[in-house]
Simulated assay, not measured.
Amino acid sequence: MIDHDDAGTVRPSTLAWASRYLNDGERIVATEALHGGITAEMRRLTIGASDGGTRDLVLRSFVDPAFVAHAEDMLNREAGTLALLTGTGVPAPGPVAVDATAAHCEHPSLLMTHLAGRTVLDDQGLEARVPLLARQLVAIHALRPAERPREYRAWTTADAVVPPDGADATAWAAATDVIRRPPPPYEGRFLHRDFQPGNVLFHVPPPGPAGPRVTGVVDWVETSWGPADLDVAHCSSNLAMLHGPAWGLRFAEAYEEAGGTLAAAADERLYWRLLDALGFSTSVRWVARPWQEAGRTELTTRAVEQRLDAHVTALMDALG
């Protein structure tokens, strides 16, 4: 987990590196921490031009030793994905520069364009946002790049699952047995792999006839090739923990309503949904922290664990 105590500060070596990629007459005039990241520090760099105008860039830096060890692969993969997404219609940042080995920066870093909009994690307005999330994910899955990204990687195993205190032991034991099975066959799709409300930006207008719209999708470090069900499962798990288990079930419906295709058999759908949900069993406190920082202080680790338990139980009841 990253430490936000040094909010906004960017090391001189990193600022000097980023300055190399500015236009003539531009300079970095301000930096600001962007909260919400789990694996990396995010900073907004305000760029001033000689005519008085400004624009923003975003700097991702891996500072936690646990993630620095993997930073080269992750940052190069994200930079490549952002380049691939340019011109596809998927609203993603554009890559500006990458120093994946910290040859010039204090820490391994990626510099990218800044997108308008903000993450929205409140319960209010969720009914309107869920279909937008689903439509955006269908558009991502429709991409057919000339070169496929790496195959997906499971983020847990049956032996690594640790049910939360007070969880329904019977349901969790049955759920764990589900993911002991070999993965079902699937038709591969281009996956974001961490598609969830914290990685989607919205424009939310004042009350009126115009509704919210998606303005960006960020954090492409885990881009993979795999089953659409897995991306749907990940967003469903996050929605269940953030807003309640009913929304975990609702998202899969919204995805199909938007034209997406999921596994035909209920047992196959259950496998992918549980493979993702059970992966949170040992990481709830890391997941909850950005939500708390965003103002959802009621989402304590215990509260989110209870929602995760309810989500797993709901999946077993609905699909098991």
Rank of each mutant, 00 (worst) to 15 (best):
A318T: 12
V138G: 06
P95K: 04
G226L: 08
E256P: 12
V217F: 06
R269T: 02
A97N: 12
A66D: 08
L34K: 05
R269F: 04
E72M: 13
R285K: 14
A92L: 12
G80A: 10
E293P: 13
D99V: 01
L201W: 02
G198D: 03
D56H: 13
A228C: 11
T54A: 05
Y152A: 05
F251G: 01
L201K: 04
P182C: 07
S236R: 11
I140Y: 02
R55G: 00
H107N: 09
A18N: 00
G125R: 07
Y21Q: 15
H203P: 05
V214T: 03
L15F: 07
D194C: 05
G48K: 06
A294R: 15
P93C: 10
A18H: 05
Y255R: 08
L308R: 00
D24L: 07
V304G: 13
D99T: 03
A128D: 11
L299P: 13
V284W: 15
L262N: 02
D231N: 00
S283H: 07
S50M: 01
R213K: 14
G166I: 08
A128G: 03
D159L: 10
V214F: 11
A263C: 12
G260C: 09
D99M: 04
A33C: 03
G279I: 01
D56R: 10
P65Q: 04
A92W: 06
P209M: 14
H70S: 11
E293D: 15
A16G: 07
T297C: 03
W225F: 06
D24T: 15
A49L: 10
R20I: 01
L230Y: 12
A158I: 07
P197A: 10
W155A: 06
D159E: 07
R193W: 01
Q292N: 07
H104V: 12
T261L: 09
R55F: 04
L126W: 12
L75S: 02
P95V: 02
S19H: 04
G244C: 09
R144I: 00
M74A: 03
